[in-house]
Simulated assay, not measured.
Amino acid sequence: CDQYKKGIISGSTCKDLCEERSLLFQHCLSSSPTQQVYSGLWRETEVIIKCGIEEALKADSHPDSVPRRDMVLFDKPTRGTSMDEFKEMLLNFLKSNLGDQPSLAALVSRIIAMADVNRDGKVSLAEAKSIWALLQLNEFLLMLSLHEKEHTSKLLGHCGDLYVTEKIPHTSLYGVDVPPFLQSLLPSIVHQIIHQWFAPAWPRRAKIAIGLLEFVEEIFHGTYGNFYICETSFKNVGYNDKYDFKMVNLRKVATEMTIRGFLKGRHCEQNVDCTYGKDCMATCDKLLKQCKSDMVQPNLAKVCGLLQDYLLYGAPLELKEELQKQLRTCMTLSGLASQMEVHHSLVLNNLKTLLWKKISNTKYS
């Protein structure tokens, strides 16, 4: 608010946050010093408030480095930058992060429209600095890139590099999660029983799973390039009250460009040395002792591993055997480019069709 009052930053929620006090912080939801996430109320609606601090995947490798809030300088673009220069800046930034996609010009227009808070057709320096700072945050960039199919949280507004998103009611595939302090104490079989006990009815799980498969489809050669889920866990995926799938944590998703940059020239002895995030593993060329850019396991295979427990429990008997067979086939998919395209689409569509046939024309669809 101090920076807003000085005219350094701007945004659609600044007035509500700093003057009218209608955007309220409630509880801190993050235990990481590098990530500030709060539940909040905005005009009587429950929201999530996130403050841009430091990237999850970068920060995780240096747990001791506690970032300082004042490190965000809002120093770009500089005074005197023309509108055309700013558009060029945005386009080059998107190219380096998402690859040279034909659709980037449309994304630039969307960013400009979002930056123009007062809708006067111009972007002020404060508006430009705020949107530029936001774009440096991986999650914000992904939210913009993956908004079309509504599998991510809706972006509701921003102020400087703070942004507000809708609250996803269920932040785990199972609808309930074992409290952190109990997780290490309970054996995995107990976790499984708790999950099964509280999980939605099977047809609802099938609907959520179809949404998750659609998300995998969307991020594989989507409008803005290729994306990888780098921590495939039921805790990063959830759903809303209509049982529509929602990706809860986009911080665990990376663009192909990011991963390529990470792998380029990286020394390795074995595949595990070429791991980005938790489970985005590429192959190691053992002769050259360098990482290659082929993923060992594609998104789809990892997601099917997640869906195996989720869908087989309580599945209709007439479907169970076929479902198990298809999930097994899916889990053996390799990330090698040669077998990607056709095979993947086939496996994915077969799974979606199998599930959809079972729940279409019922109250669950």
Rank of each mutant, 00 (worst) to 15 (best):
K235W: 00
R260I: 11
C284Y: 11
D273L: 12
C304M: 09
C284G: 13
N299M: 00
Y243V: 01
E231Q: 03
M257N: 10
S293I: 13
Y228A: 14
F220Y: 06
L287A: 11
G222K: 00
Y224M: 08
K289D: 13
Y224K: 07
V296N: 07
D273R: 11
A254Y: 01
Y239P: 07
N271A: 11
G277I: 01
L311E: 10
G305H: 03
N299L: 01
N249V: 07
Y224A: 05
L287D: 14
L311N: 08
M257F: 02
E218I: 00
M295F: 07
T232Q: 02
E218K: 01
H267A: 15
E231D: 09
E231M: 00
G225H: 05
L263I: 08
F227C: 01
L300W: 12
K289Q: 15
C284S: 12
N240A: 07
S233T: 09
T223L: 05
H267N: 15
N226F: 10
T283G: 03
K252E: 02
Q290F: 06
Y310L: 03
E214C: 06
D309R: 15
C304Q: 06
Y276I: 05
L311I: 12
V303W: 08
K242N: 14
F220N: 07
D244C: 10
Q270W: 12
Q270D: 12
L312I: 07
E269P: 13
V237C: 04
C230K: 10
V216S: 06
Q290E: 09
V253G: 00
F227Q: 02
G225A: 04
M247V: 04
D244R: 10
F234A: 10
D273H: 15
M257E: 13
I259W: 14
K235E: 03
T255V: 05
K278P: 05
K252H: 02
E231K: 02
K302T: 14
